[in-house]
Simulated scan of single mutants.
Amino acid sequence: MASEERKTIELNDPLALRAYAHPLRLSLIGMLRRNGPMTATQCAAALDENVPNCSFHLRQLAKYGLAERAPAADGRERPWQATASSTSWTDDSDDPETRVAAAQLSAAILRHHVRQAEAYLAVRGEEPAEWRAAAGFSDEMIYVTAEQLVTLYAQVEALLAPYRDKTARADKSRPVSIVHMAIPVPEDGAP
């Protein structure tokens, strides 16, 4: 089977950055990317939300090009789908409003991943031993230039690329969230 095309949406409008930073919207897009097209009713059930709330936030995601209506199996279904497999943004804009909005989105993404990690830790003991051994956390201090860091990120992206293809999933595979952050820290080790 042919591999899935990896499409990225780049956000650079402050309104779109702020719109995407909403916790429910981040969860909705994540679910649509993982599961494929879903109705607002299915999203609400999966996220323990109410249907009108999910419907509103799906329309907001569509307003900024992050979600769209998917073809329906019948005339009554109204499924939504993500428009891309990933979203990117930068905070190197000359516009102060865009920089602030990008920082707000980065903080929202960080909170989202922290909640995901905490939820995993709460059930980690119930995971099979092979998954407890394979999954986990680590941190490491490296010394690189900005140019080297860009190269490192490109290398990490290349390593992850073959595993993004849902059509080439191995037996017993399951979704795994890979979070990589590069955060410059002071030389003296202060927080």
Rank of each mutant, 00 (worst) to 15 (best):
A101Q: 03
T145E: 06
V114T: 05
V156F: 03
A119L: 09
S27Q: 13
T41H: 00
R34E: 14
L61C: 08
P14A: 06
L121P: 05
W89D: 01
Y153K: 12
P23W: 09
T83R: 07
S173C: 10
V123G: 04
A16N: 03
Y64W: 08
L28W: 04
T41Q: 11
E10W: 06
I109T: 03
A154R: 00
I178F: 15
E187H: 14
T41L: 14
R164M: 10
R25D: 09
N35K: 15
Q60C: 03
A190Q: 15
A168T: 15
L58P: 09
M1C: 01
T151K: 01
M1G: 14
E118M: 07
N12A: 02
P96Y: 06
N35G: 09
P37M: 07
T87P: 05
S106D: 09
E187R: 15
L11F: 02
E127A: 15
N53Q: 14
S85L: 15
A103V: 02
V156E: 02
I109V: 07
A67T: 11
L58W: 04
Q42L: 00
A134H: 10
E126G: 10
P175R: 10
L58H: 10
A129D: 13
D92V: 02
I183R: 06
A154Y: 03
L152Y: 04
E126V: 12
M181K: 04
A133G: 08
P162S: 05
I183L: 12
D165P: 11
I109H: 04
R132K: 13
P128L: 10
T8C: 11
L28K: 07
R76P: 08
G65N: 01
A46Y: 07
A84Q: 04
A107N: 00
H22Y: 14
T41C: 02
L17S: 01
D91L: 03
A182I: 02
D139S: 12
R174V: 10
Y163D: 09
P52G: 00
V185K: 03
T87W: 07
D74C: 09
P23N: 02
A16C: 10
S138C: 11
I9E: 03
Y20V: 02
Y143M: 00
K172L: 05
W80Y: 11
A170C: 08
L61S: 00
A154Q: 02
H22E: 11
V176S: 07
R34V: 02
A46Q: 13
L152A: 00
T167G: 15
V114A: 04
R174E: 12
R124C: 09
A21L: 04
T8D: 08
E5A: 05
S85E: 15
S3F: 13
E130V: 09
M38L: 15
T90S: 01
R132W: 06
I109W: 12
G65A: 00
Y163R: 03
A45Q: 13
L66H: 04
A16M: 04
